[in-house]
Amino acid sequence: MNYSWDWGLLFRSPHIDWLIEGFRNTVVMAVLAWFIAMSLGSLIGVMRTLDNPVAKRVGTIYVEIFRNIPLLAQLFLWYYVIPELLPAAAQKFVKRDMADPQFWTSVVGLGCYTAARVAEQVRSGIQSIPRGQRAAALAMGFSTAQVYRYVLLPIGFRTVIPSLTNDFLGVFKNSSLALTLGVMELTAAARQIEEYTFHSFEPFAAATVLYSCVTLLVITLMRVIERRTRIAGSVGSGR
């Protein structure tokens, strides 16, 4: 193979600026989308465990829709189709006045997609708790909201920390699909460097290293959180 390596090109302007901007966009998108996914997903997951049949149904429909349509199709729907269905005033805002519509569409799309996954984790976490806990909490006089706030969610979240870590890494990696809407995230930055320099190995190697670093960091952090929140005396806590 006759390839002349030039690692230095990564650190030359404007390539380094593209990489930095791409990395920043990837991280910011993932964090914002995760924020949506956790809030919306917890709500939907809780709804699926309530006795109220309407809440249950709404939760189930949400999960089925957002889990079963491919993420790329969802991003296109959010970007090309949904704005057309909005009332005129909202349409004008989305199409003309909103800053950076590709970025925000990606955040919302990724967030709603990942919310369906988070919802399933939250639901399974809550349902893994013996039914007596809910009865005992209700018998104390806690309202339903308090039963979730103080008993079911704290226990349920602990049991699904490993799966939630996977979902966060999922949203981080899936954010690369935002390049199809034209967002300058990490993968798009690597591709742009390739197009300008005809060097493909260096920029994609850089992107790979950056993705891996974040993944390792997140896994390490979540291990610490898992250890810190582990319930004393429970299985596997070493006491």
């Binding site: 018998a139 006089g141 103080y150 319930i231």
Partner: peptide
């Protein structure tokens, strides 16, 4: 909830909240 708070209930499987200390189990409610 108000009515239940005035009746104590004790279960076969104890049903203490596992993620709280004994003190907090008793104090939080």
């Amino acid at each position: 909830p108000r009515l239940r708070s005035r009746i104590g209930m004790v279960f076969q499987n104890f049903e203490l909240f596992p993620h709280m200390t004994v003190r907090r189990n008793i104090a939080l409610p």
